[in-house]
Design a protein around this nucleic acid. Structure first.
Lengths: 196, 196
DNA sequence: GAGTTTACATACCACCGGTATGTTAATCGT
DNA sequence: ACGATTAACATACCGGTGGTATGTAAACTC
C-alpha cells in the first residue's frame, strides 16, 4: 500500500471532505475527531494530514463548499426571477433561496453554528468569504437606487436582513409553534417591501 | 489544603465563574483549558470539578449570567422609556440596549459565537432559555395590538428583528467600514417604524 | 466528640490534534 | 529506459486535554 495515481488521490481527498461534512453535520465540529473520520474510510490519520494541514483546514474546505453551493443557487434564483416591473422580485427570490439554506441542518451546523466559532470571527465576515452578505448587499443597493432605501442605510440593512434570515432558519428548524417557511417568507416580504 | 467554610466555597465558585468568563471571552471556549482557568487562581482541577460537573456546565453558568444581566438591563430600559404618545419608544429602547450588548466582546464571544456551538443549538433558541426573544416578541406583539403588524406575522418578525440585531452586533465588532452603532440603530429604527 | 460530609488536592487515564519518520509506487529528467 | 525525485499514503509517537478515582483534613451534625 502506497502511492496511487493522481486521480485516485483526488478521489480520496474528496471522499475525506464528503465524510467530514457528514460527521460535522451530525455531531458538530468539536465532537467529530479526525480518527472518527479516518475510521469511517478505513484510512489512517497520516493520509488525512497529507491532504489537509489541520482539522481546521478540512473544516474550512467543507464550509467553503457549502457557501459556494448556496451562493450559486441563490444567484441563479435571483437571475431567473428578474422582472422589469417588480424591483423586488430578484432580491426576494435570492433571499428565499437563502432562507431555505438556513433551514437545512448541514448549513446550520456547519456554516451558522460551527463556522463562527471554528474560523475566527474576524475571518467569518471578511468580504471575500461571506458570499451571502455580498449578494444581499447588492440587492439592497439596487433597492436603494430605485429609491426604497436611504443610501446611508444600505450596509446596515443588508447585514440586518441577512441575519434575520439566519435566525428565522433556526427557528424553523426546531419547528417553533406557528412558524412555517411560508409564513416566515411572507413576513420577510412585508419587512422588505415596507422599507422606505 | 482542605475544607473551608461554606461562604468561602461560594466565593471560590464565583471566582471560578469570573475567571472562566474572562478567559472564555479573551480566547474562546475551545482555546481555554480547564488547567488555564485553575492556574490563574492557583487552584487544582479537582477543585473545579468539585464545583462543576464539566467544562460545559461551567460555560453554561457563564453564559446564563450574561443572558440574565442583558435581560434585566433591556427590560429596565424599555420600562424607563415607556411613553404613552409614542408606541415605539419602549420597544426601541429595549432593542437599543440589546444592540449594545451584541457589540460587547464578551457577549459576542460567549453568547453569540461559542454559545450555539458549545450548548447544543436547539437549546440556544429554546423559548424558556432565550430571554432576549421573549422580550422582543412581547414588543412586537404590542406593536401588533397598536395595528402596525399583522398578528400572524408577530412570531416571525420577532425572531427576524432580534436576529438582525445579533448580526449587526457582529458587524460592528469587526468595525465594518461605514458602520457605527448609531447608524445601525438608525437603520433598525427605520426597519421597525416602516412596518405596516 | 465521634461520624459524616464538604472542599478541596493528587494521581492517573483515554483520547485528541499534530508531527516525525517510514515505505512504496508513480512521475520525471535525461 | 532507468535512476532520482516526489507524491500518497502508513506507523509510531508526543504533549496536552477533559474527566475520574482516590486521598485528606477541616467543617458541620447529632
Amino acid at each position: 500500500m502506497a502511492r496511487r495515481s493522481k486521480i485516485d488521490a483526488e478521489k480520496t481527498r474528496s471522499k475525506l471532505i464528503e465524510t467530514a461534512a457528514r460527521l460535522f453535520e451530525a455531531r458538530g465540529y468539536a465532537d467529530t475527531s479526525i480518527t472518527d473520520i479516518c475510521a469511517e474510510l478505513n484510512m489512517t490519520k497520516g493520509a488525512l494530514f497529507h491532504h489537509f494541514r489541520s482539522k481546521e483546514e478540512l473544516f474550512r474546505e467543507v464550509w467553503t463548499n457549502l457557501q459556494v453551493e448556496m451562493d450559486n443557487q441563490a444567484r441563479e434564483a435571483a437571475i431567473a426571477a428578474r422582472n422589469l416591473t417588480d424591483p423586488y422580485a430578484a432580491f426576494l427570490a435570492g433571499c428565499r433561496t437563502y432562507l431555505e439554506y438556513t433551514t437545512r441542518r448541514d448549513y446550520q451546523q456547519i456554516v451558522l453554528v460551527d463556522g463562527p466559532s471554528v474560523l475566527n470571527m474576524s475571518g467569518w465576515y471578511e468580504s471575500d468569504h461571506d458570499l451571502g452578505n455580498q449578494n444581499v448587499k447588492a440587492g439592497v443597493r439596487y433597492l436603494s437606487k430605485k429609491g426604497f432605501v436611504e443610501p446611508e442605510n444600505v450596509d446596515a440593512l443588508a447585514i440586518m436582513l441577512q441575519s434575520s434570515l439566519n435566525g428565522a432558519g433556526f427557528a424553523l428548524a426546531r419547528n417553533t409553534p406557528g412558524l412555517t417557511t411560508e409564513r416566515v417568507y411572507a413576513a420577510f416580504e412585508v419587512l422588505v417591501k415596507s422599507l422606505r
